[in-house]
Design a protein around this nucleic acid. Structure first.
Lengths: 229, 229, 229, 229
DNA sequence: AATGAATGAGGGTTCATTCAT
DNA sequence: GATGAATGAACCCTCATTCAT
């Protein structure tokens, strides 16, 4: 912004400043609006099948404006992925390090919190997007692998390890046990973004109930205990 | 094109008949080769990002030939899906109806047999494909829903119901419990076809071990039993 | 933009007047700076390949400002041409009318003076520009033809005619002899502005030496004289 | 072409072969037709101002076809330059090495032959093109420099050296004397392709007469000989 | 007057589809 | 049937031009 606006020269007046600020705010917001629109459409239709003009239109701007903010459609995709992978794992690690309660509760909490903070948000679309487009954009896939998959798996592993260490969980093949948590969550996302969209209304999965059912079974198993053994 | 065909003499003779038969067989095989090639490529790169010419090239024919067998790229996709979801559910239903053994074993058997007959085969690509393209082709998605998802879920439900009825499994919210079986299998397929392709060699999932670990936990739970009970 | 202008106090004062004067001068200068920048770029990259924004940037103003002074890119081109062919032929005619010396000297003088006043200046770019763009802008080309080529050729013709009249030069096909002077000068300009830019450093033409060599030969010829005659 | 066509199987007949051959010939001719069209338009309008579709249209094909033969507009330009710089200097060197006659005649012959074989042909457009676009395509310019300018100058130099060696020409600053031949020829081309196109009909340069006038003056000079010396 | 964000027509390029051979 | 040259609609991206500030 020009210095004159800040110092208030002759031409400047209150209204001007307000307008300028509004415009400035708009300009700041533009990339975000475009990224949101792009995420929606890339997730819904796939990268190749989404036209740049559609993204612009959904963000309420013209085709040309899109390219004012992102040099190409592919860079837009990269930005979409980058933007939506706010590395929150540090924060979560912290949170789980101080968790006080059983490891079973921790697993439940982890799954629920993930749903609230990722699964239920637009960010979940990134997972669908990467699943669909990974092989077309290996560079982005590698980035996603390193920024999301690796730290995510490490986090789950730590939780399970805690349960094993405390004796609450039995001995586990951790390399594979982590998918007990991950698989149902990923599946939930895929359902939401893919076939789920084609399912008759009223029959979609209820995420809370879904997660509860999964957690119950993962923790306690389907097979009834004791008694007849 | 085979040289023999090109040189083939003028008059009808034994060799001619042999050639004709061979050609006939080839002609019959052609669509299959195209469907195979298309499945591979659609799964790997997505529908929109796959060029018709690539499909033809991988099938060893020219671009024009592809359109001789399929009127459009979209019809090719439909055929690919139709071709690869040969509903084997009738057969499986039969098989499971006569299963003799515990329901826990049945779950394990079901997951393993699914892997052998679907997950490990090219047919698994259809799942990936539908996940990625469902929203672009709702008609195909509905078809898949009806031909695969509904009967598949019914099958799983029957297995779990059997366990509940026999008292081997505790009471279950069946609408959601079915995903205990489905989610890890779908996840396995997505891993294989998506990000899995971007994972460092040697760190891919071992399907057998993966399925065993999932089945164990689903059936028995992570939490240690007995003792304090 | 200059900081002083932005901070400038509210009340009229001496400084204000100074600023206003400076701004006024700047305002007058603006079109000139734009024309200079445009000439440079049009010559270097061609009209179509030069972006309006580049011109503005080189002139140190914003894109919008360019269109404040010139209604379109094409009008800018017209202005560039118009501005840079300040018909100095009247003055030169005068000068040559009063030339005292041999016509050979006059030819040499003419070529050298042309180099100093046109060839070595930015104005020489106009020649290159017209050569490149004439067929795209016939209207401008006609203007150039009328303002530069016709009077230029007339001037040369007068010089040669003088030599012929005085008996210093042999009989000449004047319509074509004029190009003896013109061709090497135009070639020098084209060298400077075109391929010359691609020639290894140190191997560019030395204009003075080039003109001297051309003039010598034109006047005296390559073939040795006398002797055997 | 398929072997069957050559061996003549069942389906093949004379008409078929004729048609196929015709088509084949067309395909072979296509690139040449496109290059011709491109040369014309690039020369006339400049590279940037020429649309790919125009080139295709002038060659009588559709836009898409152009890109079947040349991967991009820029590659088309490169091909145009390459195609039209059939390095004929070897042949010419040979020709001039065996020239029998005075060096003055050789100069005249050289200029005339150049006009017939280059100046009067489409290839002359390349010179115009390079003059206009050199700085936009330094790579092509370097190629042109190396393939045309350097050998061309060497050829001229040899001719002049011959005259100096034989005593027919006086001592020369060869580095600059070569432009006595080159400049008028280049100027002739520029006239033809640039302003020349804007000159009133009937007033264009007559190349033969132009070359004769230039050669006469270059060889014998404007200044009358003998007498007063 | 000056700015630069926004626009949208235009041009290069791709690719599903057609059709003459 | 099979081919692949040809087509042209559609898409990405550029950039001259506008206009709110």
């Amino acid at each position: 912004m020009s210095l004159s606006k800040l110092i208030g020269g002759r031409a400047g007046n209150a209204s001007d400043e307000v307008q300028a600020a509004k415009r400035e705010r708009r300009k700041q917001a533009r990339p975000g609006e475009l990224l949101d629109a792009a995420l929606d459409l890339f997730v819904e239709k796939g990268f190749a099948a989404t036209r740049a003009e559609e993204v612009a239109a959904r963000a309420g701007v013209s085709k040309g404006t899109l390219f004012l903010y992102f040099p190409s459609k592919e860079e837009l995709l990269k930005a979409v992925v980058r933007e939506n992978i706010a590395g929150r794992f540090a924060e979560w690690n912290e949170e789980f390090d101080h968790f006080e309660g059983s490891s079973a509760d921790m697993v439940r909490y982890c799954m629920n919190v993930w749903w609230q903070r990722v699964g239920a948000t637009k960010a979940s679309g990134i997972t669908k997007l990467m699943m669909s487009e990974a092989s077309n954009f290996p560079e982005i896939a590698a980035f996603y692998q390193q920024e999301v998959i690796v730290p995510g798996q490490a986090l789950i592993r730590k939780i399970l390890q805690r349960g094993v260490d405390s004796g609450e969980f039995g001995p586990l093949d951790l390399d594979y046990a982590i998918f007990l948590i991950i698989a149902p969550l990923i599946f939930l996302i895929m359902s939401k973004h893919s076939m789920g969209a084609c399912v008759p209304v009223g029959t979609e999965l209820d995420p809370q109930r879904y997660i509860a059912a999964q957690a119950d079974a993962i923790l306690n198993g389907l097979v009834v205990r004791g008694g007849k053994a």
